[in-house]
Amino acid sequence: MKGGSRRADGRRRRLYVPVLPVALVLSPLLLLAVPAGLVACRRFRVSPAGALRGSRRLLWALPGTRFEIEEGRTALQVRIR
Results as ranks from 00 to 15, higher is better:
36 A>P: 00
75 A>Y: 15
1 M>A: 09
19 V>F: 11
39 V>R: 08
58 L>W: 06
31 L>Q: 03
33 A>S: 14
48 P>D: 12
9 D>P: 01
19 V>C: 00
9 D>C: 01
49 A>M: 14
39 V>P: 00
57 R>T: 07
21 P>V: 01
45 R>T: 14
46 V>K: 09
76 L>D: 02
24 L>G: 10
33 A>G: 00
2 K>P: 12
22 V>K: 01
41 C>V: 08
10 G>A: 02
34 V>W: 13
47 S>D: 15
69 I>R: 03
33 A>V: 07
68 E>M: 01
5 S>M: 13
18 P>L: 04
51 A>T: 09
19 V>E: 05
67 F>T: 08
15 L>H: 05
80 I>T: 02
23 A>W: 11
8 A>Q: 06
38 L>F: 15
49 A>N: 11
58 L>T: 03
31 L>Y: 09
48 P>H: 05
77 Q>A: 13
59 L>V: 06
13 R>V: 14
40 A>K: 02
74 T>C: 12
31 L>A: 08
33 A>D: 04
62 L>H: 02
14 R>K: 10
58 L>F: 11
76 L>I: 14
71 E>S: 02
67 F>R: 00
73 R>H: 09
15 L>R: 06
51 A>V: 14
53 R>H: 07
75 A>N: 10
75 A>I: 09
45 R>M: 10
47 S>E: 03
4 G>Y: 14
49 A>R: 15
24 L>I: 13
4 G>I: 14
17 V>N: 06
1 M>S: 04
79 R>P: 09
65 T>E: 07
43 R>G: 03
79 R>T: 12
32 L>D: 00
49 A>F: 11
3 G>E: 11
31 L>E: 04
5 S>D: 12
15 L>F: 07
81 R>K: 09
79 R>S: 15
21 P>D: 03
19 V>D: 00
30 L>N: 05
32 L>S: 07
43 R>T: 13
1 M>L: 09
62 L>E: 03
11 R>V: 03
19 V>N: 00
28 P>M: 06
18 P>R: 01
18 P>N: 01
16 Y>V: 10
67 F>M: 14
34 V>Q: 05
7 R>V: 09
69 I>H: 08
